[in-house]
Write a protein that binds this DNA or RNA. Structure first.
Lengths: 209, 209
DNA sequence: CTAACGTTTGTCCAATCGGTCAAAATTTGC
DNA sequence: GCAAATTTTGACCGATTGGACAAACGTTAG
């Protein structure tokens, strides 16, 4: 059971990595159809035919990128565990997701582009692996609700709202920075966001009585 | 001061509308660079040269679409007013935004596409009109906080979180439906979302003591 | 009817697209 | 050091792209 991954030389490993890095940059800002092989090749510092020696089709690059992405992207949710205190567990899930938006914004945008366009290339993954994982974690959250550890609400939509609020800082970064302006749109915006989200998810907006 | 809008015949008005409707469909799912004039022309039921008679460049269509979009898109926020009860006011803002995600998903995706790609065409609007409006409403919200009507937190990030959570149901609709599955991903998902978001924003997740 | 105007179409173009291919340059195993 | 294997390049291809243009068609006012 090892025949699936083709044997690769040192140069192939390095160059493929170089191409994937360049493609991440290009795909995440232009989308799949909006990106050209020439753009990626130039960003990777090589000629188009040379790039096509390592990836025979444009789609192969995108596919490889997408497979890797999904693994790292779902890691934080996989870590959501039944062990610690529920509110603490959720708080740190939110923090981890926000850190990913800060540290891997291109990956977030690549994913957003794919979903926006109807997820033509990863639909089976969404309905399969992703749904299974979310259902599993929703069950964990439901357990916390039954135990009275957190308020009763819809676990699936809770997960959606965490995804939405955190990824917003990667996908809509341009808008966030434009609205916050020069003074508040600097590096501190992620700490502000973290503080705000923690308060929102734990206490909501109702005034302390 | 009326010379800016060119005189138009009845046929021109109708056909331009037809083209914009078709272009909204095409642009919102493929992005600007990913869409072709032929696609739009076919969706509008006319030949490419005929379409180019009404809009001389592909960019003109996108620009017109974008200008209209922004006006309707910001309407709910404009309505956010200082008059009623703050919590009720925020609740109904969230509800209106969620209804827009349900009723105008293509507009939401068009906007998301533009922002994802760095907002090259509407950056001035974000820094100008949008920032001004948000700052204004943030001031209103700050007033509510000072009056003790809602919990003290960051008004800008509060607005971001409302945008993120509601638009998520338009922009990431495919993913939402895939994860919810056939039974829960039907028409009822927006009502479920509305109930969840209301609870989240008002009470948070802390269990009722 | 007809001239003027508005609309539609077929044809064409240069640029760009994803991708091929054979030859040249380089690296590697022995 | 040398032959085999790998890597890189330039030239090229058919398809598609955004757009131009003149000719044909339709409409309407006098």
């Amino acid at each position: 059971m090892e025949g699936s991954a083709p044997r690769r030389t040192r140069i192939q490993q390095e160059k493929r990595e170089l191409i994937l890095e360049a493609a991440l940059e290009v795909f995440s800002t232009n989308g799949f159809r909006g990106s050209t092989i020439d753009q990626i090749a130039e960003a990777a510092g090589m000629s188009k035919p040379n790039l096509l020696y390592y990836f025979r089709r444009k789609e192969d690059i995108h596919e490889t990128l997408m497979e890797r992405l999904l693994q790292t992207w779902l890691a934080p949710l996989r870590e959501l565990d039944d062990i610690g205190d529920p509110l603490t567990e959720l708080r740190s899930y939110i923090r981890r997701k926000l850190e990913m938006a800060r540290d891997f914004p291109r990956e977030s945008r690549l994913f957003a582009n794919e979903i926006l366009q109807g997820a033509p290339r990863i639909m089976p993954l969404l309905e399969g692996e992703l749904k299974t994982l979310v259902d599993e974690k929703a069950a964990v959250i439901k357990g916390w609700m039954r135990a009275g550890k957190i308020a009763r609400t819809d676990p699936w939509h809770l997960i959606f709202s965490i995804w939405a609020t955190t990824q917003h800082y990667a996908d809509f970064d341009v808008q966030v920075r434009a609205v916050l302006g020069a003074d508040r749109g600097g590096d501190g915006r992620f700490e502000d966001a973290a503080r705000f989200l923690e308060q929102l998810f734990i206490d909501g907006l109702k005034p302390k009585s």
